[in-house]
Design a protein around this nucleic acid. Sequence first.
DNA 1: TCGGGAGTATGATTTTGATCATAGCATGAG
DNA 2: CTCATGCTATGATCAAAATCATACTCCCGA
Lengths: 234, 234
Amino acid sequence: MAEADPLQRVPLFDLLKERDRRRLAGEVVETRYRKGEYIFREGDPAEYFHILKEGAVKCVKSSTSGKECTLKVLMPGDLFCCEAAVFDGAPHPGSAEPLCDVSILRVSKKSYFAMLRRNPDAALEVIKYLGKRLNEAQENAKILALDRADQRLASLLVKLAERVGVREPNGLRLAVRLTRQDLANMVGITVETAIRIMSRFKRAKLVSGGAKQIVIRDLTGLKHLAVDPLAVRH
Amino acid sequence: MAEADPLQRVPLFDLLKERDRRRLAGEVVETRYRKGEYIFREGDPAEYFHILKEGAVKCVKSSTSGKECTLKVLMPGDLFCCEAAVFDGAPHPGSAEPLCDVSILRVSKKSYFAMLRRNPDAALEVIKYLGKRLNEAQENAKILALDRADQRLASLLVKLAERVGVREPNGLRLAVRLTRQDLANMVGITVETAIRIMSRFKRAKLVSGGAKQIVIRDLTGLKHLAVDPLAVRH
DNA sequence: TCGGGAGTATGATTTTGATCATAGCATGAG
DNA sequence: CTCATGCTATGATCAAAATCATACTCCCGA
């Protein structure tokens, strides 16, 4: 906590009255994690509320058979485990793993709830944020339930391009490093299927690049494909 | 609004200070719908916040190709379209259809937000409710992404049994009327597949009954199946 | 610059579930 | 009672994606 008011520019906290922000600042702990570590694991007790300050984090759930599913990639400003922070004593329903070196802010559930009770605007902000997340999750469920593998992957790439795409001469570069395995885990398919479809997308000049760097070369084409039940041939 | 304080026993509203509850009561409209009507449709402007008072409602999303997916069956006390109520001017991301004759309470977004701003306890309650719903939605996404058709159906039946199961001599009867098509829409499979799997479940004495009435005869067996990657044979 | 490991690529085979087709059953309105 | 209609049932066929197997390629560090 080197700066005078480290929470001033953090989403959610920026809404607090200055007095409350200062009060809370003393209770916020900043921690750094590197790729490969866990921020928390499925089943751990959920005692803190988190905000991602820097880097990218994936939320993962796994099934008994060892298969994994990535629910969401969080970016700076995202709140996480608001959903878990909510239950008294219930464990984390999923794990949080850094996709690169990250920095997160952590507050105890108790201080978090006390803060919300004192700051109706912040509470409304959290309500809006959760509403948005619930919406996303339901949209996602629809896609998983109704769409084919290639459509799901196309939808994912569109979503990623819009969230973390960086303009570049030949398209939008995704600012997070994701392997085919990562992509597969996000849409409920196997690596092999993800690789085959990505190869098809490359041939169709929709995307380019590998694990280090994915570039979206034809966003409109992908959007089309996500909606249209016609596969890209060959 | 015949009764003195119609909101006293309604979830969420029961938390309000009496003064606020009375104030809000004037703004709450109760409406009845019957099976076959729509409460609202995907794309309609979202101007109200809803609470289900009586009956059962399904939340549905559909894809361009006409296929439908049922996100959730709401029961009395459930808030709905909190997620949509949140966006300024954005349309409903899904439809709400009664599964039987229902009664719903409706408040304008404006009064709803004003009420939450004045009642931090109610706001926290909404946060908890949304957290729970987000959790459910993510659990659901995991199941859709990783599990086979029979496991998904088994999970659904377990969930339904726990939410709307009524004790009976031969098992738990589901208090909502759901056809095989409804079940199929909830887990992203076709009617035919739902029927085949339900037939298998019947043969294995896990369930009984048809569209009028589904009875869960072996909850433990279903729970097992939901988790275990072994199909019920024959 | 060489070797190893992580990630990508691609083929062959099998499994699952969708699709198409037809038939049977039950429930309720008349 | 009886017909109509909405749901369930089941078979045959097809397509999509999982699985298993093997090879390649790129990068990074020693």
